[in-house]
Design a protein around this nucleic acid. Sequence first.
DNA 1: CTGAAAGCGCTTACAG
DNA 2: CTGAAAGCGCTTACAG
Lengths: 341, 341
Amino acid sequence: MVSIKDVARIAGVSIATVSRFINNPDQVKGSTREKVQVAISDTGYAPNTLARNFRRGKTGIVFVVLPSIGDPFFEGVMKGIMQVAEDMHLTVFIRETQFNTLTADEYSNMIFSKQADGIILLASVCPFTAPLERPEGNQQQPIVLSCESVSPELSHFPSVRIDNISAAKEVTDYLINLGHRDIGFIYGSHSSTLTLDRERGYRRAMKAAKLPVVDSWVVEGGLTLAGARKATRKLLNHSQRPTAIFCANDEMAMGTLHEIKSAKLRIPEDISVVGFDDIRYAEILDPPLTTIAQPAEEIGERTMNRLYKAIEGRDIGTEPEIVPHKLVVRRSTGPVATHNS
Amino acid sequence: MVSIKDVARIAGVSIATVSRFINNPDQVKGSTREKVQVAISDTGYAPNTLARNFRRGKTGIVFVVLPSIGDPFFEGVMKGIMQVAEDMHLTVFIRETQFNTLTADEYSNMIFSKQADGIILLASVCPFTAPLERPEGNQQQPIVLSCESVSPELSHFPSVRIDNISAAKEVTDYLINLGHRDIGFIYGSHSSTLTLDRERGYRRAMKAAKLPVVDSWVVEGGLTLAGARKATRKLLNHSQRPTAIFCANDEMAMGTLHEIKSAKLRIPEDISVVGFDDIRYAEILDPPLTTIAQPAEEIGERTMNRLYKAIEGRDIGTEPEIVPHKLVVRRSTGPVATHNS
DNA sequence: CTGAAAGCGCTTACAG
DNA sequence: CTGAAAGCGCTTACAG
């Protein structure tokens, strides 16, 4: 491996000059510049990033920690993150947890060991087992939470997200206004605040309308297609079958639509379905899905901007930054059928 | 920031001992171990990964370069990669290119600068502008291509993939056997070998059956939902409308199904549709999609295994490693309608 | 504009 | 089992 020394020797200059040539060519005289350039080309020299980062104490890298790249919702958020990161000359790397929690080692590596200049947590479940507390004397990397509603153990971190409770209440109210009284809810997982908040919104709307929530109407779907399909079958076989189903995300709603159609029921005539997120598939589903649109790209942009400020050493506080959501009505919802019984 | 020196001073030992305690506790006497442990806990010390990697010349990191996390097909491949990586005690980071090519700087950083121990290229388009050639005297990181059919400029790299040409020929043959003669093809992009290979397979099948390929039946879909929708509308308005459409991936097929249904045509009675990949949505589409199943997880596992060997310094050659695909017939395809005209 | 030199925080042969 | 010391490849004040 050719190092800065080799280049210096061949060019007949000091390593300091080679370093300057690479980082601040203006500081190097034209004729010297040429000699160095030739030596670099001849050797195929590339600076050792490991050494450079170590020396500088900066990496120019931001980590995005997320459970799985499979969730289409993340696509938009990443787009926003990447756009801003590029402007800031930061490189983004995604660390997929595959829904596992990271080991204590990885955690400490990530948070304390300067592998990156900052971290974005794009997760619906806290991916760390170790406590996110700052040991005395050790400074941790700036962290910004994206999308995640702030759970108690994460509440001392800044976040950017929509108001999940209000959004869930809004979409439930919408169903109630269509005349639905029997509304099922497929949640993700009770270890996810995000999902809990959406359930909270659903329960608030039901309560405000003085509608009962039957316990077995609230079913776990694990935020996955397969989980939602199973959950939907449970609801369809329920003695008191709901006339509407609220899925805590669109991915699950896709499974729900499929199961309802497989059972030869009509959407929305027999059952209305709503999702959450407005992923790119929502509008091409059959029928197109009524859902809550999250401004994914904007969330990504704001998250990255906020993290950048923190990396620069500015105080960004710990307040959640709330961005507006929007109810998007499509054809998967309709008035409740009139009972002739 | 507390460093190894601080810990050594507080524990009353040398930094060498602290280092040993962290990396090989067995080499340290019990009583010493305790002193060091206390000092570490008290200070909240975490080793500086930047320094460690630099010193060791190894990072324990593998980069996966892919165009966008939005493609559901990558989910399975990543799962396979992650499983093997975990066994090998390697950490995987994903670098999303957002369909851009990386700058020469990033390229050289990534390939030559030891930021990672190895690289997986999970891309349908070569993400580098710079030539992937090895400058004399500079050793580049091991690279393995995953899924990508090997294009000329990448042919000196090992790869793991299915035989895209055969698979595409197989699914086209299947349509032909159903009686279809007018078969449209929606390709991704002509800068992608993967897509070109699928087109090649389609053309071979047509030729073998002595069926003409009308130029305007072959339309670009950009591998995206939106692109495929536009492409499909073109095909539907074609004076000689195809009776079957072959989409170069499932994501595009999702858009195609939607547009056909929007035009009030029936699938498969009026038009048959096939995709490619067998992503998790394929079986819940309406109708469920006939497609080529790629063993995504297996591809990921094999890719990571092969890369690991290379990282260990073993010779892995440059032969492509071909894994078997499978035609999965579902309800989006059927016999061509009998013409009564 | 350029060079000599210190030093970033670790790991590891070497000596004891 | 432990310590003193070299050195990984850079960057950057400092001096000239």
